[in-house]
Design a protein around this nucleic acid. Structure first.
Lengths: 183, 183
DNA sequence: GGGACTGTACCGTCCAGCCGGTATAGTTGT
DNA sequence: ACAACTATACCGGCTGGACGGTACAGTCCC
C-alpha cells in the first residue's frame, strides 16, 4: 500500500483521466482512494492544493525522465533536445504518456492564472534554457521543441489525427535535425 | 446594435477572456450583453449550447482568414501552409489572436470529450488534409503545422517565454521551409 | 493519554435550468 | 377595421442539486 498522499494523487489522476475535469470531485476522489473526504482534506487542505500537488508530481516525473534520457544519450550535441522529444512523444508521434490530458484537467481546474501555474511556467523556461544551450543551432532546437509541443497539444485537445506513418516520418525528420545541425 | 445572438457570444467571449472559465456564468454573460438570463436562454437553450456556439464562430472565423490568405498568396506551392502559419501566429511568434485563450476556456467548460468537440476535431482533420496536399513535402508541411500549434499551445497555457528575436527567427525558419522544399 | 489520522454529518454558496409571465408584431376571420 | 389569436423575443424570480469546506467525534498507534 503506497503512501496515503500518493494514493490520493493517484486517485485524483485516475478520475481526471477517466471522467475529465468534471470528475474531479473531492468525495469521489476520496472514494477512489479508499479514504474518507475528511481524510483527504487532512492531507490536502483544499482542492487547489490537491491539484497543485498533482501538477508538481507530474513536473517532477517529467524532469526525472528528461535527466535520465539526457545522461543516457552519447551522441554529443543535441542530447537534451532529443531527450525532450523522447519524453514528450513516442516514435509514432503519439504523446508519450497521459501528461497532456492531465495538464488539460489541471488547467481546467486551476485556471490559466492560478499562482500554482507559476511552477509550470518556470519549468518551461528551464527547459527552454537548456534547449538553447544544447550545442546545436538554437533556432533548430526551438523548432524541434515547438513541434514536440504541437504533438503534445493534439493530445491535450483529444486529437490524434496523425497516422503512425506520418508520425514516424515527422519524428524522424525532427530527430535528424538534432543531429545534422550545429551551433 | 448587432444581432442579439452575436451580442451574447461577444459577451461570453469577453468574460472568458477577462475572468477565465470561472467567469462564464449565465447571469454575468447576460448582464454583459445587456439582456436578461431568460433572454439568453431563449437564444441558447443551455450553457453547453452557448459554448458550442462560441466554438463554432471561432472556427468559422479561422476558416475564413485561412481562405483569404491562401487566395492572396501568389508564391505557388505552400500557400495554405503559409496561410496556416500566418493565421495562427504573428511574425514575432506570438499567437495571432485570442483564439488559444478562448479555446482553453471552451475546453475547460465543455471538457475534452464533449460531442461538440467533434467540430474541432473535424476542423483539424480538414486543415491537415489541405496541408498534406499543398504542393510541398508533406513531412515539412506537418512540421510547420506542428510548430505553429506549439506556439499556439504556449498561449493556451499562458506561456509566452519566446522573446521577439527568437520568435522572429523561428518564424523565418518555418517560412523558409515552406518555400525551399517541394514534393 | 496524546497526537496523528480517519469518518461523518452538516452548512453555505453558487449556479444551471425552469417557468410563469409581459410586450410587440404579425395573421386571420368577419 | 377590429377583435381574437399566434409567434417571437425577452424578463426575472425560484428551486434543486452539486460541491467545497468545517466541526467534531471517534480510532489507532506510540
Amino acid at each position: 500500500m503506497p503512501d496515503t498522499r500518493d494514493r490520493i494523487l493517484n486517485a485524483a489522476e485516475a478520475r481526471l483521466l477517466s471522467e475529465g475535469p468534471g470528475g474531479l470531485v473531492l468525495e469521489a476522489i476520496a472514494a477512489e482512494a479508499a479514504i474518507s473526504k475528511g481524510g483527504l482534506l487532512y492531507h490536502f487542505a483544499s482542492k487547489e492544493a490537491l491539484v497543485a500537488g498533482l501538477c508538481e508530481r507530474m513536473l517532477q516525473g517529467f524532469d526525472e525522465r528528461l535527466e535520465t534520457l539526457t545522461e543516457a544519450d552519447d551522441r554529443g550535441p543535441g542530447a537534451f533536445t532529443r531527450a525532450y522529444l523522447a519524453t514528450t512523444v513516442t516514435a509514432e508521434g503519439k504523446p508519450a504518456d497521459n501528461s497532456a490530458r492531465l495538464m488539460a484537467g489541471i488547467l481546467a481546474t486551476l485556471g490559466r492564472d492560478s499562482t500554482h501555474m507559476v511552477q509550470l511556467r518556470e519549468a518551461f523556461a528551464r527547459w527552454h534554457a537548456r534547449l538553447a544551450a544544447d550545442g546545436i543551432d538554437e533556432t533548430t532546437a526551438t523548432l524541434v521543441r515547438l513541434a514536440a509541443d504541437g504533438l503534445w497539444l493534439s493530445a491535450l485537445l483529444g486529437l490524434n489525427e496523425l497516422d503512425p506513418t506520418a508520425g514516424r516520418e515527422a519524428l524522424a525528420a525532427l530527430h535528424e535535425l538534432t543531429c545534422t545541425e550545429d551551433a
